[in-house]
Amino acid sequence: MSETVLKIENLSRIFTMGKRKIQALSNLNLQVKRGEFVAIMGPSGSGKTTLLNVLGCLDKPTSGKVVLDEVDVAKLPEKELCKIRRNKIGFIFQTFNLLPYLSAIENVELPMENTKKSKSERKKRGRELLQLVGLAGREEHRPQRLSAGEQQRVAIARALANDPAIILADEPTGNLDTENKYEIVRLLGNLNINRGTTIVLVTHDSQVASHTERMLLLQDGRITKEKQGLHLTKKKLMCPYCGTKIQPDDKRCSSCKKRL
């Protein structure tokens, strides 16, 4: 299995609006290693969502290569792309995008529907994942009966359903209050530490981005800056602020009391 889970080479995406051409992504290069937690930041219109859509096989690049788990997905037909989306990618959206007429567990089971898993296996996995995101006992609740933070947890559980190679999170904390925002970031961080899940997170929020391992700044369709985040230290189970030993589930450092 390759070290690199995602490799982008000379990626361009041009939108044509009438006679106007808008270059959303321009000769972009990026590599994400397996087990990395990466944040992509940038102002509005910088191409964050376009990049995420291309990475998630929801959109096709105008030119360039997108190699996901050793498969160049840029040229694949829709039929193959849907299999890639189902098996290799997990999506987390800003507005959660849960199906309102399904319960929490049914939402989590949904991506497994077209796999070889039996109904009971799907149910079992759904329960495990909801337990993992801290929603044990809320399996039968419909989205409208869950708080925003809980809904995003269900969305995270859904993203993990088929054990994807990468999780793509588009502003996952954008609709959450501060408390829930950090809960979700911590949950994603723990998934990265405990399960080795590769996560690419797009956000406006520099505080959220700082809790990842690597921060990339996207401007005018190019990555212009790269910075190390606090998560790298946390991965070594050390407080990024004071270096005290911490546990993955700790919310604050026992020594400096800063939020982890």
Binding site: G56, R85, R86, N97, L110, N114
Partner: peptide
């Protein structure tokens, strides 16, 4: 429409 987008994002095929 958004629900359709979500279903496709989580791996539903055109036929599904």
């Amino acid at each position: 429409t958004k629900e359709i987008g979500t279903l496709k994002a989580i791996g539903f095929s055109n036929w599904n």
